[in-house]
């Protein structure tokens, strides 16, 4: 069994581009967050309800950013931890 990441259950997010950032509204907590491009990209990958591992997310981000996925891996892991502390994503055993 390995764990992936998904949006916090029961939550739906609204994402809006504002200047160089993405503003994110969580319907479950009522909180607003301003995020950089990378965390916003990670959230939009998960926003269809998908449950993805950090590897899959690094590959998805690399496809948008045109760089080898290995380069993204550490940053993606970092971003996931930060998003989890904001209650936007959670670990999921699959």
């Amino acid at each position: 069994m390995m764990h992936g990441w998904q949006l916090t259950s029961h939550d739906t997010l609204i994402l809006e581009e504002i200047g160089d950032c993405v503003a994110v509204y969580s319907n479950a907590t009522g909180e607003t967050h301003l995020l950089d491009a990378l965390p916003a990209e990670v959230l939009s990958c998960l926003s269809s309800g998908a449950c993805l591992t950090h590897l899959e997310l690094a590959v998805a981000v690399a496809a948008v950013a045109d760089e080898p996925w290995e380069n993204w891996l550490p940053q993606v892991c970092n971003v996931l931890e930060r998003l989890a502390s904001m209650q936007l994503v959670e670990r999921f055993e699959r």
């Binding site: 609204i14 809006e16 504002i18 200047g19 160089d20 950032c21 503003a23 509204y25 319907n27 009522g30 607003t32 301003l34």
Partner: peptide, 22 residues
């Protein structure tokens, strides 16, 4: 994005307004 952050904190009822306020 800076204006947005300042206005969130300056509103009387931003949080009460929910998704519509956002």
């Amino acid at each position: 994005e800076v204006a947005m952050t300042r206005l969130v904190n300056n509103s009387f009822n931003y949080r009460v307004s929910g998704a519509q306020g956002f």
